[in-house]
């Protein structure tokens, strides 16, 4: 069953189409990988799904309802939770408090702290609980970004380049965490530049180019398509 269906969505920024008549669907419990060259509309896709940009045309169906008119925080409360490419920690709060923020919306402080603590442990931030969030290194901030989103009880998680800017050995734990989340039944849209990670994680792969869907299917099939290799892989994989 599809949890999220994007129907014929278009979005323009002053004449330039960031998304053009885009159709995409994600099945419950699956990972949809989204790749494409810079400016292909990947982040815009996340922005329209989570409500940070309004669509010009088209529908976004989530769990059978059109959500394209709802503001971001309402979508988040319905379980559509995103991360940001450049981590946006809440400076001045500790790692634990950062993770507590979404939990506090639903639970008392004591309960929120308990839950946040266990999420932090799971997300490998157990040793940094009481550090000021802004003092974490990039890898830590990426983990915190993920942990905080996970703490918001998502049903569908939209990850914007969770591995961007990380070294190989820093990526491994994040790949493992994403896989674990999927095993827990979470649906994930993964926008990523790091090819190996996407291929390893995605059940379905969509390739965007100039806001259009260039290809869509199982990763191994998509990777074979010539159009994909030309548009995207040409640069790095040749």
């Amino acid at each position: 069953m599809n949890l999220m269906i994007i129907e014929n969505v278009s979005k323009k920024f002053g004449g330039i189409a960031a998304l053009k008549n885009l159709d995409l669907a994600v099945e419950k419990g699956r990972i949809l990988g989204v790749i494409g060259p810079n400016g292909a509309g990947k982040t815009t896709l996340i922005n329209v799904i989570t409500g940070y940009e309004k669509v010009d045309a088209g529908k976004i169906n989530y769990d059978g309802k059109d959500i394209s008119k709802l503001p971001p925080h309402v979508r988040a409360r319905h379980g559509i939770v995103r991360t940001f490419q450049i981590p946006r920690c809440f400076a001045g709060l500790t790692v634990l408090e950062n993770i507590m923020i979404p939990v506090l919306l639903r639970h008392s402080r004591g309960e929120a702290e308990r839950r946040a603590r266990s999420i932090a442990e799971r997300m490998l931030l157990g040793d940094d609980l009481h550090k000021q969030a802004e003092t974490l290194p990039v890898g830590g901030l990426k983990l915190l970004e993920l942990a905080r989103a996970y703490a918001a009880s998502p049903r569908i998680l939209l990850l914007d380049e969770p591995m961007g800017g990380l070294s190989q050995d820093r990526m491994e734990p994040i790949i493992r965490l994403i896989r674990e989340m999927r095993e827990d039944g979470l649906t994930i849209i993964l926008v990523e530049h790091v090819m190996k990670a996407v291929v390893a994680l995605a059940d379905i792969l969509a390739v965007l180019n100039f806001g259009e869907r260039l290809a869509h299917g199982r990763p191994c099939d998509v990777m074979k398509l010539k159009a994909v290799r030309d548009a995207y892989l040409g640069e790095g994989h040749a």
Binding site: R88, G92, I101
Partner: peptide, 21 residues
Amino acid sequence: KSRYFLHAVGESEEAASALGV
């Protein structure tokens, strides 16, 4: 509790609303 929400919104409104605030 709202102290935390206020702080979060003050730091990054976008990140806070992404979490449902």
